[in-house]
């Protein structure tokens, strides 16, 4: 599904990723763990196509196609989604309007019939129920005045609505209390199936207790220094990152 090969990427002349290799197959959940500054956010931004990064070497293949020249919207339409660490708030932009525009862009791209207001509302209400969200969310401006937990839930709502094939969860657990964490983990788990892949980027193993990744990678100074099963996350929790540093 997603194949990252010897990826070197940086910003403002500074190389942050120094040769990352990562291969995620359909249905797999991978976790990338690392401390602040290890390159976790750069990795997710580069996969989703944020401007301002320079890829000096290597490639990102999605379904065997190189995507590094693709604009963000093309990647999204192809099925790549990111749940943002800091979802942007947009005063005046209605949440329903935004989500409907995104879904219809996807449907249009797939040559399917776009949804009208009623059709969309029916669909999104089902998703809201799954996430314990009330319909007042839909009337509000995107992330405007949302609490940390509400913003993250709104990200998951978008994921459930847009149905991506691979979802990158960038620090989804940050700023969440335990109840919110469980709801979100539950939402993600329900979405998992043998086709859909995940890349979970996180500081702590806390979220992984609920998500159970297939593979855990440790990112230090822009390189994957170790990969292993979910027990690697527990080991990191116990020992910290220090023992993996060369």
């Amino acid at each position: 599904m997603l194949n990252i090969k010897d990826l070197h990427a940086g910003v403002d002349g500074k190389e942050i990723l120094q040769g990352v290799d990562l291969c995620i197959n359909p249905g797999e959940m991978h976790a990338v763990m690392g401390r602040n500054g290890s390159g976790k956010s750069t990795l997710s931004n580069v996969i989703t196509g944020k401007e301002g990064y320079n890829i000096s070497k290597g490639d990102i293949l999605y379904k065997n196609e190189s995507i590094i020249e693709w604009p963000p919207e093309k990647r999204a339409l192809a099925g790549i989604f990111m749940s943002f660490q800091y979802p942007v708030s947009m005063p005046g932009v209605n949440n329903t309007y935004f989500l409907k525009a995104a879904l219809n862009a996807k449907l249009k791209n797939a040559g399917e019939k776009e949804l009208d207001a009623a059709g969309f509302l029916k669909l999104v209400k089902e998703k809201l129920t799954e996430l314990n969200m009330d319909t007042s969310y839909l009337q509000r401006a995107v992330n405007e005045g949302f609490s940390g937990g509400e913003k993250k839930r709104n990200e998951i709502l978008q994921m459930l609505t847009l149905e991506p094939e691979i979802a990158i969860m960038d620090e989804t657990d940050s700023g969440l209390d335990i109840d919110a964490l469980k709801i979100i983990a539950n939402g993600i788990n329900k979405y998992r199936n043998s086709e859909r892949s995940f890349l979970v980027i996180t500081h702590y193993q806390r979220l992984l207790r609920y998500l159970e990744p297939d593979v855990v990678h440790v990112l230090i100074d822009g390189k994957v220094v170790r990969s292993g099963g979910k027990e690697l996350a527990l080991e990191l929790e116990e020992k910290g990152y220090h023992w993996l540093e060369s």
Binding site: G49, P71, E73, M90, L162
Partner: peptide, 11 residues
Amino acid sequence: ALFYIRSRGID
């Protein structure tokens, strides 16, 4: 904000 919107498939 532009990136956020585009990352949802909107041109």
